[in-house]
Amino acid sequence: MKKSELARAGEDCAVKHLIDKGYSIIERNFRTGFGEIDIIAEKAGDIVFAEVKSRTEGTGFTPAEAVNFKKRRQLVRLSDYYIARRGRKYNNFRIDLIGVVFKTDRISDIEHWENIIEE
C-alpha cells in the first residue's frame, strides 16, 4: 500500500470509529495555507479536532510517537484558526489523536486519545 493510500484508509477508519461513538462529522481535511486538520467532529456541543496517524504493523513505532513538538504546535495553530473562523457557536474544544494500526489489509487496532494537547 502506498503512503497516501494508507493515510486515506486510516482516516476512513477513524471517521467510522467516531460515528460509532456518537460524533457527527463536520469537516474532513480542513485545509489551510499552513496545513490541514484531518477530521473535525462534534458531540454534545464539544468540538473535536482529530489528528489521524496510521501505521502498518511491524514498523516498530506507535502512532502516538509521531506527534512531535512541531506537529503539536501546528495542530494548535490550525485549531485556533478554525475556532476563530467558524467555531463561534461552540463552547468546548479539544484536540484528539486517533491511531490506526493496519495488519496487511485489515485493521488490527484503533486507539483514541482525548485532549492530547494542553498549553
Binding site: 494548535v76 485549531s79 485556533d80 467555531g87 474544544f93 479539544r94 484536540i95 494537547i117 494542553e118 498549553e119
Partner: peptide
C-alpha cells in the same frame, strides 16, 4: 474563556 484547553 473559549479556546483550546489551556491553563495559564
Amino acid at each position: 474563556s473559549r479556546g483550546l484547553p489551556a491553563n495559564v
